[in-house]
Design a protein around this nucleic acid. Structure first.
Lengths: 212, 212
DNA sequence: TTGCAAATCACCATTTTCCGGGATGCAAGG
DNA sequence: CCTTGCATCCCGGAAAATGGTGATTTGCAA
């Protein structure tokens, strides 16, 4: 028997969900919550396997609740639920400790699969969600590609040294070249990444994933 | 009927896996590959639903293959397979377009669940893998917390401006304070983040997730 | 061969950062 | 009341970065 807690600030939604889930033989809704605080209280009081957590709640939202919950009760699995297929929502709640994310407009099959998958400790992201995350990753990877090609190996080397805090002179000694050469590389880097100074250079290098 | 391709450089492993999968009624192994190139060829030739891809292969490795494959055949689902529960492997192959990741030392049930989940377009990460990713996210979030507390609001504001490439003077105008004040903030930032200069400051700010 | 791009080195004026101080007002907390 | 932290402001000199211009070598590709 999988013990569930439902957290959503819309009572009608919770009611519907509860009825739907309790039709399944192996599921049992042991608590309902209308806010993040109630979720934490419920989990303090009795053992819970999975919390189905709406992201958009007044007061402490799903993200924050997720963070607290996975700190206090690491064994409780968190399934994020939301109407928004938003990259930031998804990645935020996953970073906050959730194991799964399902959209409210997907069917009940998806939800049931998610529950059973999470119950084994594995991760589940529904189809549309996977697609969203995937495409954002791919986009980042592409930018990475185009930006990296613009820089020569030597420039990348100098770039890393600059980001590490070495001065032009030190980099020269490190790479066995004159500081004048390093200055030229630095100038070319500033030009190629359209940065106004060292700070912006390092910033853009990070954004384009030229350094980790 | 789900059409599978198995890619692994160890023939015996492929043989075993094939026998295991074909015992299932709804699975069909339509091809085997010992390298990334063969995978791409196979997918060019006939329709494939899921590629089960070993990460450690000679020549073009699983990560690279994944990137190529999801570029040329976005509809093909990629399931990463490896003996290593390594955070970098996992995140790299997911970024490269894979929808799932399963360890070789997990049972066949996990693999079958993964296949069926991926076939619907959803994402599956097995239990240990989820745990690994989760703990690394949590760790990052914790560091974030401790580092962020050290800086005052004003300092964070100045830090962002510095990273954006504004000079001390410009920041002063922007925040309606004297450039001398900005210099003090900058000094404190350098001290607090133990950076030698602006470049390293921006670098460390990124590493400690003080800026995105 | 010709031409181009990358890497190398050089000079120099101007701006900015870096680092060492010192100083004030203010609010929160012991 | 007094300490502590924060935000504000100021100064001066050394060090570094910035921007402009020019030049040589090397290797590769048209």
């Amino acid at each position: 028997m999988i013990r569930l807690v439902l957290a959503d600030d819309h009572q009608m939604f919770v009611d519907g969900l509860k009825s739907l889930l309790e039709d399944e033989g192996d599921l049992c809704v042991v608590g309902e919550a209308k806010s993040g605080y109630e979720v934490l209280e419920l989990c303090d009081r009795e053992p819970v396997d999975i919390v189905i957590l709406d992201i958009n709640m007044p007061g402490m939202d799903g993200i924050q609740t997720s963070r607290e919950l996975s700190k206090k009760h690491p064994a409780v699995k968190i399934l994020g639920l939301s109407m928004y297929n938003d990259r930031d929502y998804i990645s935020d709640i996953l970073k906050a400790g959730a194991l799964g994310y399902v959209l409210k407009n997907t069917g009940k099959d998806s939800l049931l699969t998610a529950i059973h998958t999470l119950n084994e400790g594995s991760t589940y992201l529904s189809e549309e969600v996977s697609r969203t995350l995937l495409s954002s990753f791919m986009k980042a990877a592409q930018e990475h590609h185009t930006a990296e090609e613009k820089l020569s190996d030597r420039e990348k080397e100098v770039l890393e040294c600059i980001a590490s805090g070495f001065t032009t002179h030190e980099i020269g000694e490190k790479l066995f070249i004159s500081k004048n050469t390093v200055e030229t590389h630095r100038k070319n880097l500033l030009y190629k990444l359209k940065a106004r100074n060292t700070a912006e250079l390092v910033n853009k290098a990070y954004k384009q994933r030229l350094i980790q």
